[in-house]
Design a protein around this nucleic acid. Structure first.
Lengths: 135, 135
DNA sequence: TTAAATGCAAAAAATTTGCAGACGT
DNA sequence: ACGTCTGCAAATTTTTTGCATTTAA
């Protein structure tokens, strides 16, 4: 689905600013607010900071974009996609995605607590393959 | 271990301010910076905001306190303890801890990626038992 | 006694808001 | 044409810092 459709499907106008933000997220995979500002400053120098704030916030509300919170790192934003685990390399800082079935854990929690598990976000701190082999 | 020992073991002086912050975290289990300010304002009205910031930051550095980042919620602080999962109720906002063995997941990730998994932080969004039965 | 810690006030950084004009549909 | 969206500047909120004084060890 194109970003234009994506926005329209969520009752948001497909403005160049919003498309620019989405393109940036698409290119980066993960990006902090700072990253986004910096990248956008080149492509679209007149795009204001408040517009970035407002649109990220709106798109997170609409669940077009996800805000990813990780320990010891600035918050990242990304285009919402299927559930995955974040692998955060403590050496080089790279963040990999890893698709995984976590429903067994969810089931176990439901059994033990009586709660209903809705959704999950999971991250692991790792030393990535590249950093391991660089030693 | 007392909070005094806890601080001394980490080369931090056991000041009344630090003890007050730790007591507050102990009582609350989880607390946002705002919570901490509010609670401390009563017990110890002269404890300054910058001291709270500085000490939380120092104690997180020393790993006495953990900063818990959760999607769509303000960051929480808590006294560091054994690894556990956070269950965040989307209805009432309550956060429960749930001790669980996640090493199988870690193993699976290591096998599939070649990374070394160091540590984990995991949270699940739930509707808690109480909210479920309140319907 | 002495290095570390605190409070205060001020600075800096991050985020939000109001509003007049521009723009997507 | 209409209501939404934007840029700008200003307001607000959050976090950090410098420094004189106090305090734990």
């Amino acid at each position: 689905m194109s970003h234009i459709e994506l926005l329209k499907n969520h009752e948001l106008k497909a403005t160049p600013q919003r498309l620019c933000i989405l393109d940036t997220l698409q290119d980066c995979g993960h990006a902090t607010l700072e990253d986004i500002q910096k990248i956008i400053r080149d492509k679209h120098p007149t795009l204001s900071l408040s517009t970035i704030y407002r649109n990220l916030s709106d798109m997170v509300q609409k669940d077009i974009v996800s805000e990813v919170k990780l320990a010891n790192r600035k918050d990242h934003f990304e285009i919402s996609k299927a559930k995955h685990v974040h692998l955060v390399c403590q050496k080089c800082g790279k963040i990999e995605d890893f698709l995984i079935e976590t429903s067994d854990l969810a089931k176990e929690i439901e059994r033990a607590t009586g709660d209903k598990v809705l959704d999950d976000t999971l991250s692991f701190d790792v030393i990535c393959k590249d950093c391991l082999s660089a030693k």
